[in-house]
Amino acid sequence: MSENNAMTLAPKKSFLKRNLPVVSTAGPISIWMIIFVMLPLLYILFISFMSRDVYGNIEYTFTTDNYKEMIQPLYLKVIWKSLKLAFLTTVICLVVGYPLAYYIASKPSKLAAKLLMLVMIPYWTSSLVRLFSINQLGMPNGFLNLLLLKLGIVSEPVDFLFSDGIVIMGLLTAMLPFSVLPLYSSIEKLDKSLLEASKDLGANPAKTFIKVTIPLTMPGIVGCVLLVFIPSLGMYYVPEMLGGGKVMLIGTLIKNQFLMTKNWPFGASLAILLILITLAMMWIYTRVGKLDELEVG
């Protein structure tokens, strides 16, 4: 009996011993990623094809109803609006962030490091409180209106809240640092002699920018799109704080399926939609840059 035991254990032990360095280093992280990331995501996929009973419990019968439900005009509108606001936020982040990143990259490296730090510091303060500041500024009797009234630009207080505009503002304050970082790292790597070559060959600055600078900094641009567009889709607290619940985006919709109406399968199918959008964006990113080089912080 004991001999038998030793027999079965022996090859196992030698396997462990042989692979001890790999198992002890890569083992914990592999187990962690499988349990906390991969399995739950597979479960989301699984559940998105299940139905539920009247009490909100999941019934394990196959259905595609959850995906069909998305096509209802009410939900399509939410999805469309989320995509629109995220897209606008991304474009503004690019248009505002690119010149700033270029400006920082043109400075000596020590100053550049400080300027980048200055971009990141606000990100380390509570984003909720920053949003609340915007909220307070934008109220009908808030400071912004006071200023506009005093200057005579408006004759009556404007309600800035509950509009798409202020939600984009909020998304911008939350996302701008993330657009500057990847842009900076690709602009910084830019070989300046290529710009001179373009100039020597007779191109004017605008042409050089479009034909040389933009293509060469494409990894940063797409990285910026990746880091701004996708999170913007899921940031449910921004519209909640600034839109006052009147601006419904997909993040809030998903959250409500889990925390309020308890419709897990439908929430899961919306999550799968977000994952598909993310995968598509990542695929585009791998066409122009390497994931390893994505500047995350």
Partner: peptide, 19 residues
Amino acid sequence: LYIPIVVPEVVLGISLLML
């Protein structure tokens, strides 16, 4: 490793809640 970085946080949140 890139999943938690790029997937919207709300997706990660619900997946952990379900787990």
